[in-house]
Amino acid sequence: MTDTYTLVAFGVLALVSVASAVGMLTARNVVHAAYCLLAVSIAAAGLFALLEARYLALMQVLVYAGAVAILNLFTIMITLRRREDAVRPRDFSWPGLALAVTFFAAVAVAVAGGVLVPGVEPDVFPGVREFGERLFEIEGWVLPFEIASLVLTAALVGAVWWSREEGER
């Protein structure tokens, strides 16, 4: 019963994410493309929840579906002077398509032919609490995590500096 439920949920989320990704690439209106990306992000959060990564599902909604989607829409809004500028010709490139198809075929062959060693399935999957405890353990991930926060701070300061007017720098 649980298996059927998971399978149906996976099918729906996979369909939504792939359809939205294709929609994003084929949309003529940039704003529609941004909303398609939002749909992909939310579907990915659902897939994370299916994979027992509850904290990451939450972060996916907060960071990608929240902050990044807003940032995208703001940049689109600022860089378009007229409403009609949002509609653009469809960009199409055969070399790009060939590259993507080749890459997908290579990965598909590797996944189909590879031998994957599954780990031991626990009775209860670790939740948000265990995730946080392991993240902030001294011999765990705390040092890389703090370094990553420095990287993020430096990047955001750089972003603010870059986006200011020429005379204010």
Binding site: A21, V22, F103, F104
Partner: peptide, 8 residues
């Protein structure tokens, strides 16, 4: 892989 190739 499908999502990654679409993005690529």
């Amino acid at each position: 892989a499908l999502l990654f190739s679409a993005g690529m």
